[in-house]
Amino acid sequence: MREVCADFEVELREFNGDDHVHLLVRYPPKVALSKLVNSLKGVSARTLRKEFSAHVRRYLWGDRFWSGSYFAGSVGGAPLTVLEQYIEQQKRPV
């Protein structure tokens, strides 16, 4: 996740999840969010399939690792510490 964010010149502030992933990122206006998410999902799916292929098979959506959808929300004036704490309190990725 960090490498993909760095390639897009995006700051990854917080990362956590279990059956879904929470990312808190700060990205410049020139970044198309859909392209960032597509890259994050693609790179992470390839990496996880490569490293944990036997384990991953039972979690696929058909033949895909991630669902085709995603949720993105803007947090404009919310204190980042509150958002970071929320994400930190979610279950860690397995």
Rank of each mutant, 00 (worst) to 15 (best):
R46V: 06
E51Y: 13
V31T: 10
S53G: 04
K41A: 06
S44V: 05
G76T: 13
L80A: 15
E51L: 14
E51R: 15
S69I: 06
L12G: 02
F52S: 02
G76K: 12
E84S: 14
D7F: 10
H20C: 02
P29G: 02
G68T: 08
C5V: 13
S39Y: 07
V10D: 01
I87E: 07
W66I: 09
F71L: 13
L80H: 04
G76N: 05
A72I: 09
D7Q: 13
R13I: 15
R57M: 10
N38R: 08
E9F: 10
S69E: 05
G77L: 12
P29N: 04
G42H: 08
G68E: 06
E88P: 00
V75R: 07
G77E: 13
G77H: 14
H55V: 08
E3W: 06
V56E: 03
R13G: 01
N16S: 11
E51A: 09
Q85P: 00
Q90T: 07
R57Y: 06
V82G: 04
V75D: 00
V37K: 02
L83I: 15
S44P: 05
Y86L: 02
L80F: 12
V82M: 11
Y70T: 01
D7W: 12
K30I: 05
Q89W: 05
R46E: 08
T81A: 13
A45N: 02
T47L: 08
R57E: 14
A54Y: 10
E51T: 14
K41W: 13
L60K: 03
W66V: 09
N16E: 10
L24A: 05
N16I: 12
Q89N: 15
T47M: 06
L40Y: 07
S67E: 00
L83R: 11
E88N: 13
R57C: 03
Q85T: 14
D7A: 14
E11G: 04
E88K: 15
Y59M: 03
A54Q: 10
E88C: 10
D63S: 12
R2I: 09
Q85K: 15
A32V: 06
V31Q: 03
G76W: 13
Y86V: 00
L24I: 15
L48Y: 03
A54D: 14
S39E: 14
S69A: 04
K41D: 02
K30G: 00
V75E: 01
K35F: 08
L12C: 10
G17T: 09
A45E: 03
L80T: 14
L33P: 00
R13W: 13
R64L: 06
L24Q: 05
V37C: 01
R26H: 12
D18L: 09
V56S: 02
R13H: 12
